[in-house]
Simulated scan of single mutants.
Amino acid sequence: MPSKILIIKPSSLGDVVHTLPAVAAIRDANAEAEITWVINPEWAPLLRGNRDINHVHIFPRGEFRGLGAPARLLPWIRETRRLRPDVALDFQGLFRSALIARISGAKKILGMSDAREGSRFFYTQVARVDRQEHAVDRNFKLAEAFGASLRQDLRFPIPTGDQPPRFDAFPGFVVVHPYARGRNKSIGASVILELCSALAPARVVVVGKSGRRFSAPENCVDLTNQTTLLQLVWLLRAAAFVISVDSGPMHVAAAVTTNLVSIHTWTDPRRVGPYNGAATIWKNGKLFRVADLESATDLRKGRKFLREDVGPIAELALRAVAKQPLV
């Protein structure tokens, strides 16, 4: 059995979440191994308290730009060369992640068949995966190629998070995450206001990162651009219900709660939706349980999420809020 294992998954938030169960399976199959995870600094807090790994090796990608990049890169390369793992597993599948595996001095490098940018030339073993599968399932294929066994009870070791200052968990509240980087995936201000109105008098907490602004009504707490990653995790855990567009925070929510609606405007929820059979999907004006997606049709078609789509989702959220303790 290998004594030192290197996990390479530097980013992004949702992708890191999708890799957690595969790494848990690798830990179960290699109980005594020393496991190190290469990750970008902004996502490293997500690994806080994770008993499946021993060390975190920071990949400060943002520092390796500009005129001073060589002076900052060379010390990092020297530190990475000292890792010397028996095996490196490249869950990222890009040229830079495969290069990190090579720089580490790994004796074996495993990657997936859908890897890009010529990264497969660095691999000593390739796991055959289906590009149409969910990322969690593809990651499991790589773990299986390394000898890990799949478990029925998936493990997503997400930290408990940090409670935001001066924020009380009671009364119950609904988290709305309306922002995403992908084109046409975000929800506009008018729809956010419609959600707040439909959920009143319940508290609505809007989270995420965006340059957009809206005038928050009385029952809405606007924490846009005001939370750390761990504070966001805490809010997603503590919420009575989460309404989110297809995004990294949505995947965190799917790992910690079943009270979730994931809004998919143009993306296929079978490939990039929540990996949680009890969660709910909005697609093309309809609501589906994730467990029922295989029998759903026209999931590749899409349209915007509109104000008239708010009502059924608000009803689900209000039912969850009504079940929360009053004190």
Rank of each mutant, 00 (worst) to 15 (best):
105 G>P: 00
77 I>L: 09
91 F>L: 10
291 A>I: 11
319 R>Q: 11
155 R>C: 06
247 S>P: 12
86 D>P: 13
29 A>D: 04
310 V>E: 06
282 W>R: 03
151 R>Y: 09
12 S>R: 14
77 I>G: 12
305 F>I: 07
306 L>T: 11
111 G>W: 13
2 P>R: 10
87 V>I: 15
74 L>N: 05
127 A>H: 08
27 R>K: 11
89 L>W: 06
54 N>K: 11
266 W>E: 06
292 D>A: 13
214 F>S: 08
170 F>H: 14
320 A>Q: 12
240 A>M: 02
293 L>E: 10
195 L>S: 01
67 L>I: 11
8 I>M: 10
178 P>F: 02
106 A>F: 13
202 A>H: 12
186 S>K: 05
82 R>L: 14
93 G>H: 14
13 L>F: 10
182 G>E: 09
253 A>K: 00
123 Y>N: 13
211 G>V: 07
159 P>Y: 14
233 V>M: 12
114 D>Q: 05
38 V>Y: 04
135 A>K: 15
65 R>F: 03
48 R>W: 05
84 R>G: 03
86 D>E: 07
172 G>A: 14
210 S>T: 07
175 V>Q: 07
41 P>E: 02
155 R>K: 14
139 N>F: 09
237 R>K: 09
87 V>W: 05
81 R>Q: 14
100 I>W: 08
239 A>I: 04
221 V>M: 14
214 F>C: 08
315 E>Q: 12
243 I>N: 01
270 R>Y: 09
218 E>Y: 08
153 D>I: 03
255 A>Y: 10
81 R>N: 10
105 G>T: 02
178 P>L: 08
8 I>W: 06
97 S>L: 10
163 Q>T: 08
136 V>Q: 05
281 I>D: 00
123 Y>F: 04
219 N>V: 15
29 A>G: 09
291 A>F: 10
292 D>H: 07
120 R>V: 02
142 L>T: 15
80 T>A: 07
4 K>A: 08
304 K>T: 01
61 R>G: 10
25 A>Y: 09
157 P>Q: 09
86 D>T: 07
122 F>S: 14
39 I>C: 01
217 P>D: 05
144 E>T: 12
124 T>N: 14
320 A>K: 11
142 L>C: 13
78 R>I: 04
174 V>L: 05
130 D>F: 01
216 A>M: 06
283 K>N: 12
295 S>G: 07
188 G>D: 12
182 G>Q: 14
197 S>A: 11
120 R>C: 05
113 S>W: 01
231 Q>E: 15
22 A>Y: 08
251 H>A: 10
91 F>P: 04
90 D>E: 03
16 V>S: 00
313 I>V: 10
226 Q>T: 15
37 W>M: 11
278 A>K: 08
104 S>N: 04
101 A>E: 01
258 T>K: 14
261 V>A: 13
94 L>V: 14
151 R>H: 12
129 V>F: 03
140 F>Y: 13
159 P>I: 11
225 N>F: 03
181 R>V: 11
312 P>A: 00
288 F>P: 00
85 P>C: 06
30 N>K: 02
105 G>I: 03
293 L>Y: 10
190 S>M: 02
316 L>P: 12
194 E>P: 00
15 D>R: 09
185 K>R: 09
231 Q>K: 01
151 R>C: 09
93 G>Q: 05
183 R>P: 02
12 S>G: 06
201 P>Q: 13
86 D>S: 08
